[in-house]
Design a protein around this nucleic acid. Structure first.
Lengths: 187, 187, 187, 187
DNA sequence: CATGAATGAGCATTCATTCAT
DNA sequence: TATGAATGAATGCTCATTCAT
């Protein structure tokens, strides 16, 4: 039931937004009553936090595997890090959109854990950049923190326009991003 | 008074978010009453739309000047297009954040004009990329529409972390972005 | 201007009802501003009272002429009394509807005069019935007060269905009413 | 609780009128909170519609029994049809007043069903008149639709002056009405 | 005469949350 | 586990009215 509620909530948060979605909406779509919701969640905030945590924790697990893979150089790691974001958008577009859009509606008491994991996700990214600079794979004249913000901004934002059922496959998207990131636009 | 209300609203939408900001909050901070608000705006939605329109129209005007400047090649134009976004974040960070975050709270009846102008803004960007490809300034093996989404995602997102009072100037940011966009990360 | 306001108000009260009609509606339709309204009327209540007074006073004047006409017997007077009501509905249907419908929205401070004139109107009617009974024109086994209520209920209510542009003329309506009132339905 | 709310609302709509009665008034008089009201009714409009429906449906049921009674001729039916209106005013005067006065406050989305039933009520009335004409009980030189409007106007309007605790019983009222309707005022 | 800005009290409605059963 | 009735605080919005100009 808890999963059912989360799944339905993601659907509704995606289509109507967090603040326009009522607990009533959620339970109506499942066919239960509000009491049931409050048996599984203490509050709407807790639900939103759980959705965020579940999403970011999944990403972190995938990240870890890549980062710890000794067979990959940093360019390859970077490729794979980008890949998991796009892949997640493809397979769980709704979750990805909720994750990216509704973060602001998480309030004080429920945001700490989420924020620290988002931060961790970003720093993992940056670590690969730093490592690549040290290894001579990447140029060393650009601040890695800003580069990380730049790449994440670019890639994450795909949730807003990328249509998995459209003409571009996830591979094509990732390849284009990597070309741009690694070699730039100049002819 | 209308301007005063808009200014105060932007402040509050930035700090508390659109849905958590009440009309009462807004007028209390100005020292007038709710009636006054509704004398100048028909609804909270209209206010949000006006904020969006005012922001995007300003950007469009700046874009036009750059695009029509015959003395600039496309690399230079691209540079300047990126610059106005960062510059706007620096001088009107609150507006920029509201513009980027609260778009989802604009509902059916008030979104049309805003959406078409946002689209126009993006297509102007793409036009420069296309032109640069045609002129041989940019490589021709990357889809310009996706490249545009990529660059805009990267640059726009700066609102979320760029602190104008911090150690990096807007020039430095833009230069870093342009290096990455034009030449890439590879050593 | 005062007349213009009253005329427009009657239109709006007729179509939207008193409580749903705002002062703004009224002045918008005339092309002036609210200040103008309050220059001519102290309040919405006063406006409503003036509309009522003007309507009932007009009826009372017509009544008087008939009642004082020494050439008419009481059947003829009754006929004419009914006639003026229908005639008023025909020529000033909107006023008649407002007069009959919105009386309840007249509050304490503005109702006295109106009520006493409505009462006078009814009692004038009853006087003719009484006189007719005394003169032997009408049967004497029916209470004249209730008969008056009955006739007035029947005739006044015409405002709700009588369409002056329809197939029945006012004469035909009045004749039918008088037949019913005087001779009844029995074959 | 729903019944309690309806009952209290009828009281208040009768004494203060629909538009002057607030939801707060209603719930205060019952000793619950506004939330409770909206648990049972979607809107003030829905409440008003339910009040109307409940009143008219009750009348329709009573009508049906009379109309289908094969032991009654049309004069007798007419008598009984008038009787139920007066009887309803006597036992449920408040409902009757609300029903007759506040119909105009029912708006578009909530009026359809009510209007069609009011119409049905009137047409049932007319059917008896028509039948009586065909059977030779009533004269055939008066339009039955107008006669119906006339009788209903006369009888319904009793809500505005008939005091059930006064000197006249409902039988006396109905008898007077029937005398007038059937035999007229002429001596 | 007329305007337009401002008021303030009020109102219907919403909705997350509680809790006895 | 789940329900359904009830809460209460909040919220966007309305509108008759005032008043300085």
């Amino acid at each position: 039931m808890k999963d059912k509620i989360m799944k339905e909530s993601i659907d509704l948060f995606d289509s109507k937004g967090f603040s326009k979605t009522t607990i009533q909406d959620i339970v109506d779509n499942i066919g239960v009553t509000k009491g049931t919701f409050y048996y599984y969640f203490e509050s709407k905030q807790e639900l939103l936090r759980d959705i965020h945590l579940s999403f970011i924790e999944n990403l972190l697990h995938q990240q870890e595997e890549i980062i710890n893979d000794k067979n990959l150089n940093n360019k390859e790691k970077l490729y794979k890090l980008v890949y998991i974001i796009i892949s997640e958008i493809k397979t769980s577009g709704k979750s990805a959109r909720v994750f990216n859009r509704e973060i602001r509606h998480l309030e004080k008491d429920h945001i700490d854990n989420v924020n620290s994991k988002r931060r961790e996700f970003r720093l993992n990214f940056q670590k690969v950049i730093d490592e690549g600079i040290r290894e001579g794979e990447f140029r060393n004249d650009l601040r890695s923190d800003i580069v990380t913000f730049a790449i994440l901004g670019m890639v994450n934002r795909s949730y807003s326009w990328y249509n998995p059922d459209g003409e571009m496959s996830e591979d094509e998207i990732v390849n284009l991003y990597m070309e741009l990131i690694l070699n730039g636009l100049t002819k």
